[in-house]
């Protein structure tokens, strides 16, 4: 299997990589923490410097504008966000700063490095907890001119712990195998939190108001998501393309969002439309090949419970 060694590191020891598709926005000012609490889906209150929170930023209609790791510091908060969403986030955030003392800045001079795996916390001091695969994780933010040397230093430490450097390709691969969907790949601006399967780690249902909350709470308590991300096993040698239809008895019941070769055939993530969850794991077809519904992402290994 491709990337077998790197995938093993991520599962059993630690893999280190530069997060090339993430960017940093700093949120500072006397009102930064309180204001941010009203913007994020997860509980930021009570998080000490050195702590972090995974959350979504939602549109008014409750769809996901971005996923965010809020990295809490002594005097400000750094938001680790998808690079492609920086402009949209700055525009959206700016709209909701009225008289609050809040300053936003895209920190193009900074870069995130992640260590993921059971030994991630042993790689280096400092940084913030950030588990992106359900295996344990930590991340650091360094200046661009230090990126190469820091990546080298952290990777060397990872090697001492039985791991090593992980390529972007292996990183993408690991997300599908672990069943951890990614913003911009498996879900995006048309997705509700509950559809992503990540609400157990990204949404607090008792934190109080935040933008988009009403839709999220209504979906949770009074309705069902129109579709939900599931994990799939496909009996094929070739991964299906993104958007490949998932069919059941000739009817399209969903679509693939990402797929990779796995240890036994193909592993995939894909949306299953509401109403088909209870039809059993067998009988599905993806890209013309028989497929099995493994289970919802929300219940899978890639989504672990947040620390209490």
């Amino acid at each position: 299997m491709a990337h077998a060694r790197e995938l093993k590191w991520l599962e059993r020891s630690v893999g280190v990589l530069s997060l090339s598709d993430r960017a940093i926005i700093s949120v500072s000012g006397d009102d930064a923490r309180e204001w941010l609490q009203g913007q994020l889906t997860n509980q930021l209150e009570g998080v000490e410097p050195g702590g972090s929170v995974y959350a979504f930023v939602l549109t008014l209609k409750g769809r996901i504008l971005a996923d965010v790791y809020a990295l809490v510091r002594d005097d400000d908060v750094w938001l680790d966000v998808p690079t492609a969403q920086v402009s949209a986030l700055l525009e959206r955030f700016d709209r909701y700063i009225i008289m609050e003392d809040v300053d936003l800045e895209a920190r193009n001079d900074l870069h995130a490095i992640a260590a993921q795996g059971p030994s991630a916390d042993e790689v280096a001091e400092g940084g913030w907890p950030a588990d992106r695969l359900g295996v344990g994780g930590r991340q650091w933010v360094v200046s661009n001119d230090q990126l190469e040397s820091e990546l080298e230093r952290l990777t060397a430490r990872g090697r001492d712990l039985g791991g090593g450097w992980v390529s972007d390709q292996a990183w993408n691969h690991a997300h599908v195998l672990r069943g951890r969907p990614r913003f911009g790949v498996d879900f995006g601006e048309q997705t509700y939190p509950q559809e992503s399967g990540l609400s157990p780690v990204a949404v607090s249902f008792n934190k109080g108001c935040y933008i988009g909350q009403e839709t999220v709470v209504m979906l949770e308590n009074r309705g069902k998501a129109p579709k939900v991300l599931w994990r799939w096993a496909v009996e094929s040698d070739e991964p299906p393309e993104a958007n490949a239809p998932i069919t059941l008895a000739g009817t399209v019941v969903g679509e693939i969002t990402s797929a990779v070769p796995g240890p036994d055939g193909v592993s995939a993530l894909g949306f299953l439309k509401r109403g088909h969850q209870a039809e059993g794991p067998e009988g599905f077809t993806i890209g013309g090949a028989p497929a099995q519904a493994i289970g919802p992402v929300e219940e899978g290994p890639g989504v672990c419970s947040p620390p209490t």
Binding site: R95, Y96, I98, Y210, I211
Partner: peptide, 9 residues
């Protein structure tokens, strides 16, 4: 005062 936040923005 109007502040940013709350369910509706």
């Amino acid at each position: 005062r109007v502040i940013g936040g709350g369910c509706a923005g």
